[in-house]
């Protein structure tokens, strides 16, 4: 496990980890923050923190990729909130065609890249298979940094409806991504 080497202070391992995941982290931050400069800053902070406190990742709590994406999402949302200008990305940020668009497999680790690519296509297919309301609720929460209450206000929907959409959407995604990601 590459993170074991990073915990040991292996700079080469950290460099390899960076090269493998930086695009995913940066893309997530950019998706949330909508601007390259703060996305770069957030990405930098995430990896610097990862190097300085690699023990924050606990393998028993899940896969590294899931943890890293969670860290990236939370860091970007924190930044979004700190800037006080919530970027509401609820206006259908990516249409179905975009979601199903082919991803350029130009990474430096072909095997890892292919795996991530496959999972990415799987997620996109799962998202496009969701009802628009459910997908929108999930995206507003995950990428918009909105709570269910805020989503309800934004969409002018009852909180219970939003909760149901989030729950159903998550369940469908879970089934679609079973044993993956």
């Amino acid at each position: 496990m590459i993170m074991h080497a990073v915990v040991e202070g292996d700079q080469v391992a950290f460099a390899a980890l960076y090269d493998r995941y930086v695009e995913l982290v940066y893309s997530t931050c950019l998706r949330i923050l909508a601007e390259p400069a703060p996305a770069e800053d957030a990405t930098q902070e995430i990896f610097v923190r990862l190097w300085r406190k690699p023990e924050s990742f606990v393998p028993e709590r899940g896969r590294f990729l899931s943890w890293l994406m969670s860290v990236a999402r939370n860091r970007a949302v924190d930044e979004l909130r700190a800037r006080g200008r919530r970027r509401r990305r609820e206006a259908v940020p990516e249409d179905d065609q975009d979601l199903l668009a082919t991803i350029a497999a130009d990474g430096d680790d072909p095997e890892q890249r292919a795996q991530v690519h496959e999972e990415q296509l799987l997620v996109r297919k799962a998202l496009t298979g969701l009802p628009v309301e459910q997908r929108r609720a999930l995206e507003l929460a995950y990428f918009g940094g909105l709570t269910q209450q805020e989503i309800a206000v934004r969409l002018d929907e009852p909180l219970g409806t939003v909760k149901t959409r989030v729950r159903l959407g998550m369940q469908k995604l879970r089934r679609a991504l079973q044993d993956r990601v």
């Binding site: 695009e23 940066y26 997530t28 990516e94 991530v116 990415q120 995206e139 995950y142 995604l173 990601v181």
Partner: peptide, 29 residues
Amino acid sequence: SRRVTAGLALSVRRARPPRALRGRVFRET
């Protein structure tokens, strides 16, 4: 649950960060 939500992050259209970012991160670390 995080495994599932990580999938949401993977659905994001990929964007390549500037190469200079790598140098910034390494200098910072």
